[in-house]
Simulated assay, not measured.
Amino acid sequence: MITEVAEIQSLANYIESMEIAPLFGNKVLFRGQPVKGNLLPSVAREDKTKDTTHFEKHALEQMRLIGSSLLSPKDEDDWHAIVKAQHHGLKTRCLDWTSNPMVALWFACSNSPEVDSYVYMLVADRAALPDKTKSPFEQEHVCILQPNYESPRVSAQHGWLTIHNYSNGQFTPLEDSKKEQLWLCEYLIPKRIKAEILISLDRCGINQSTIFPDLDGLCGYLNGKFT
């Protein structure tokens, strides 16, 4: 359920708006995206009523078999494997978040310049933690997870995940959740200020090369800066 909606006018206005975050609790997460709502993991966005559990389990097993030379023994554990799969682009029941609101703002503004974007703030102090005695496919509630920072990208992005459950015939978008443990605030980033915000973020050291701290990120950043 969305408890607050606001329109951002500038980077300074955004920073001021984020000052309320600590008032909500210690575990406040952010997500930036170029679409309104639809806060669902990638595996559920085309059809939230489809039970994808069998597909997800099969995809993880194929990842282990075909990509065995790229994995470690820890990836035999479903929790470890699903985090790695999400990081490398496999469709899973995980949704990416960050504990850094500036990173979320960069993601909101860096794609689709022709449309408005959104940052969502998730207050998760009372959210369920995973029951690690069960697999990610057996959780009874949406839960939050801070993954191991094995990848420089995850570390640079201050990554967190929500793990979504299939129940009552669907995956429920977070904005439609009736769970009191999950509070959402929505911030509209108008398309007219997105380019200006990216310039301001770059001056503050938030850009493609710092959010993706590898050669791909650096080259992408230089393409945008010099071409």
Rank of each mutant, 00 (worst) to 15 (best):
D176S: 08
L40Q: 08
E16K: 07
N111F: 08
L71S: 05
S167V: 10
D176I: 00
D47G: 07
Q157D: 08
G205N: 11
P130N: 09
S99R: 14
A156N: 07
N38W: 05
A127S: 13
N168Y: 12
K48D: 10
A21T: 03
E56M: 15
L184N: 04
I20M: 01
V142G: 03
R31V: 00
W160A: 01
S112L: 01
L29P: 00
I211P: 00
E180F: 03
D47T: 12
S155T: 13
L39T: 12
A81T: 07
N207H: 15
F30Q: 01
T52K: 11
E46S: 14
V83M: 09
V142F: 04
Q33K: 13
L182K: 01
K134H: 08
D116Y: 02
P22L: 06
F24I: 06
E175R: 11
L105E: 03
P213A: 13
S151N: 13
Q62Y: 12
D96A: 02
C185Q: 10
V142K: 03
Y166N: 06
N13F: 09
L105M: 12
P136T: 11
T52C: 08
K134Q: 14
Q9R: 15
A108W: 01
L39D: 07
P130S: 08
L218W: 07
P136I: 08
R31C: 00
Q139M: 09
G25E: 08
L201E: 05
M18E: 08
F212Q: 10
E76W: 02
P173L: 05
K91Y: 10
S99C: 05
L198E: 08
S112R: 11
L40P: 01
K194N: 07
I82P: 00
Q170D: 12
H141Y: 15
A44L: 11
V115K: 10
H164W: 03
L184M: 10
L198F: 11
T49R: 10
S69T: 15
P101L: 03
C219R: 12
L90P: 01
N223A: 14
K134E: 11
M18L: 04
N111M: 09
I82F: 00
L188C: 14
D216Q: 14
E175I: 06
P173N: 13
N111I: 05
K132N: 10
F137N: 14
D75N: 15
T133Y: 01
M102G: 03
M121H: 02
L184A: 04
T162F: 01
L71R: 11
S167R: 15
T53K: 15
L222W: 00
G220L: 06
V43Y: 01
H158N: 15
I82G: 00
S135L: 13
E114H: 05
L218D: 07
A6C: 10
F55A: 13
P213T: 11
P213Q: 14
D75P: 01
I2N: 05
G220D: 13
E196Q: 14
L215K: 02
F226Y: 14
P130W: 01
N111K: 15
K36C: 12
F137I: 14
E7W: 06
A85I: 05
I199Y: 11
E175Y: 11
K191P: 00
L188R: 13
P173I: 02
Y120Q: 10
D131P: 02
R64P: 02
V119K: 04
I15S: 06
M121S: 04
R203F: 06
K132G: 04
